[in-house]
Design a protein around this nucleic acid. Structure first.
Lengths: 130, 130
DNA sequence: TTGAAGTACTTGACTACTCAAGTATATGGC
DNA sequence: GCCATATACTTGAGTAGTCAAGTACTTCAA
């Protein structure tokens, strides 16, 4: 229950990203592509990292391709895979949204560093147990 | 990102509840009604506790009313509110599903108590900061 | 070198929500 | 007593996913 509520509160808070015309998941996707080696990610890997299914990624990326935030790039080695890359517009929106996201994160997390630390520690913990 | 993934993994794990014919949110709803004082909850309060909107509750409860897990109870004082209560069938299913949920939770959480403790502590922490 | 099994992705049909607007009732100040 | 404002809930339309099935390609072993 706490988890569901927490999740609900989190994504509600990050609604501030909508000023950039993107949602929380879109931001996550831009982030993941941005920091991937070579600035590109196979859709399958993107799905795994974002905690979605492959079909979820197809559907999320469709409007993002239409509005020109991300683009497809074929693989030279494997005709099945297509990479997701950021367009210049996508990079720009991501940088802007990152500022907003950071501001929101700072607002949510207390200034108190010890708390912040236990938070990251907690996430680490959850990462290992799941 | 971690949060989204964690949430995804969690609800995937709790798919085991489907043997009882209910999902994770349904279980949460049964739980919340069950442990409410008087065994009943205003739909609004249920929404707040479950981290949903009022309309989300309306839609979740609709099939649960049809299959006879929960029922409506009018308020004597306020004609606007209707309480959600468990039917005998709902109570039975809840008790059965609780066993399953506990088993899943034990499987997910490590036997190590210190970890478990920091987990609950973390949740407490998040409760205060959000 | 071919065919069986596996992987990457898309699509159709569905679920579980959300928000905005609407209905019904309650409350508090005048 | 009556109106403005607020609260509880429902409903229509839309979004963000899921799963199962299908297509296209790859790999590997006989």
């Amino acid at each position: 229950m706490n988890l569901a509520k927490m999740q609900a509160v989190m994504s509600r808070r990050f609604d501030g990203l909508s000023v950039h015309g993107i949602g929380f998941t879109d931001f996550a996707i831009l982030y993941l592509i941005h920091q991937a080696p070579g600035g590109r990610l196979r859709r399958t890997d993107l799905a795994e990292k974002a905690g979605l299914t492959a079909s979820g990624i197809t559907r999320m990326l469709l409007p993002m391709e239409k509005t020109g935030l991300v683009a497809r790039e074929a693989s030279e080695r494997d005709a099945r895979v297509s990479y997701a890359v950021l367009t210049p517009a996508g990079r720009r929106i991501f940088e802007e949204a990152k500022e907003t996201a950071n501001a929101i994160a700072k607002e949510i997390l207390p200034a108190d560093i010890t708390r912040n630390q236990s938070l990251t520690e907690l996430f680490k913990l959850l990462g290992t147990t799941i």
